[in-house]
Nucleic acid binder design. Structure first.
Lengths: 237, 237
DNA sequence: ATTATCTATAGATCTATAGATAATGC
DNA sequence: ATTATCTATAGATCTATAGATAATGC
């Protein structure tokens, strides 16, 4: 009886949409792809709000308008579904950031700046979520939530280490007299600020009396790289 | 069958300790206080690792070495226990930081600095956890985990708004020509970095190849206020 | 007498599997 | 013929309550 209050609505609308879809014939490949996507979208949303253990397979199934057993058919079990949600968009964000960093590195030559590297790393990501619409925003929250759990952090290792280490390597070039320790702690602060943004808990909205909005990623983008770059530079001073 | 693998051990040791305790007679008040504390400690640890839904009352009871029903006797239900865990230490950290901020404000007079305010706010907290030992460190992780969930953020509002708004008011004095928006976003970055520290997921350890350690709060304390203060100052430049 | 702790158990879910049915594919 | 979806159900937990027992308190 501690469980959350029923599944977040939308199930009804989704069911209707599904019925409509059924009228036009689809190939099996289409059907499969659609189901996979709908399941992942629903799971992504629910996991982002309530975490792995706060969501039941029934919640997901209801939201999509299908039977629980179909989740097993497509994803074997709950953990597998969870990881599939994580993996689906991870390579997209990872790849985009990696490319942005490489391009910046090439353009900057021997003198990259901290702020330049951070712009490539952070802005690229913020844009992706913000311009990607609701679903990408859900993924952002999902990642933030995953990132500050012990098991979740290992998923981050697995999928995001290469991009982060790329960023670190450019930061080292920009700050040749810095210790690795300073660089890594600086990154730790950066990622904390980023994750707090992606989480969109609504806290900053209430705290600021509405002056700031959790989902105003452009406002964050305008400030975060500059802010963090100055932080890095201050570590040596 | 998705549930985590049994309760994290320690139950055995705890049970033994409890049996030993029983030999020396205790007053009812002592007994009650001890049970309450043991339950809160166990719940705090487990919630910090797995979140509200990732912990069962049975997990908690087993860890303490008592029967599940006793949890209901003392705490009514699971949500109540969760909030009790949050509340127990919240006023301590909140009060300490409030006092530190007020002292700093008084000492600084008309010219407070961003770095001074942040030292009062951040260092006080980091010290409390680090010097408080394992239990306080568990609470730190617990808070970090709570903070980036939608429901959890509301607990943060309830217990921590006054301290945060105090900090904000000093920051405004230190940065009289800044917009509220800049100040609040700056705070948003600061708290993100702090929460990422409190979470102690081990990610920075693995990422840095052991150069940084998640539980090295002194290393964070040495850097975070200076880093963040420079960030604030850069927002206007 | 009052409070702390345990026993027994109701009732509700939850995950996962086996096997049936309905739709597409050659 | 193959793949997508549903029906039926097993087996395991989980939360919460009612009521019994054991320990302290006056």
């Amino acid at each position: 009886m501690t469980k959350r209050v029923s599944a977040d609505s939308k199930a009804a609308g989704s069911k209707a949409k599904r019925a409509a879809d059924k009228r036009r014939p689809r190939t099996k490949a289409e059907q499969r792809a659609e189901s996979l996507e709908q399941i992942l979208d629903a799971a992504e949303y629910l996991f982002s709000k309530h975490g792995l253990y706060g969501v039941t397979l029934r919640d997901v199934a209801e939201r999509v308008g299908i039977h629980t057993t179909l989740l097993h058919y497509y994803f074997k079990d709950k953990n597998n579904l969870f990881e599939a949600v994580f993996a689906r968009r991870a390579s997209v964000t990872s790849g985009r950031r990696m490319r942005a960093l490489e391009e910046y590195e090439a353009a900057a030559g021997k003198r990259p700046t901290v702020e330049g590297a951070l712009h490539a790393f952070l802005d690229t990501d913020l844009d992706l979520y913000y311009e990607g619409g609701e679903l990408w925003m859900n993924y952002a929250s999902f990642c933030a939530r995953v990132s500050n759990t012990p098991e979740g952090a290992k998923l981050m290792d697995e999928y995001f280490d290469p991009v982060v280490l790329k960023l670190v390597s450019i930061l080292k070039k920009a700050l040749p007299d810095y210790s690795d320790e300073d660089i890594f702690w600086g990154y730790h602060f950066v990622t904390g600020a980023l994750m707090n943004t992606l989480a969109r808990t609504g806290r900053i909205d209430r705290l600021s009396g509405g002056i700031c909005r959790s989902d105003d990623f452009p406002a964050v983008k305008k400030r975060i790289a500059k802010f963090m770059a100055a932080g890095f530079l201050a570590l040596k001073a």
